[in-house]
Amino acid sequence: MGKADRVSMVNTDSEVRSLDEMSVNESRLRHNWYHNLKYVAAGIIFGIVLVKAEIISWFRIQEMFRFESFHMYGVIGSAVAVGALSVLAIKVLGIRTIYGEEITFHPRPFSKGQVYGGLLFGLGWAMTGACPGPLYAQIGAGATVTVITVLSAICGTYVYGLLRERLPH
């Protein structure tokens, strides 16, 4: 299959691998579009939490990087703890999806991109005061100029796509 060839050519990227694996293990179920509305519902709850806990606040991000508040460390730390316990429960109890499919996990291979890209993202995170989730929530919460931030982020993603063969991974 053409897609698999293309993926094997550029397998330095964990995401292409995961996309590839997803299509290899792809669900045979075919859903109508409205089955995606459950992801909208999950997103709404996530978005409300991001705003109500002030995770979309530029000030909170500066406090985190200036060690002036425990808030963001508490949020991320407790999210990881609850997430890890949930994943453990899914594995131990053999929990399946609501469609009865097996839940699968895909290891992320190491790449130098996690260092170089991570540093670049960190710079942008402290400038915009938002990682990608909060960017979307900021727009919803009324910070309309964040539309420009997101468009610029899409440009950044596109430029990465153009340059990635020439970047160290």
Binding site: T128, A153, V159
Partner: peptide, 9 residues
């Protein structure tokens, strides 16, 4: 800042 978020992530 937005560009760095998109490129870096």
């Amino acid at each position: 800042g937005g560009f760095l978020v998109g490129f870096g992530t």
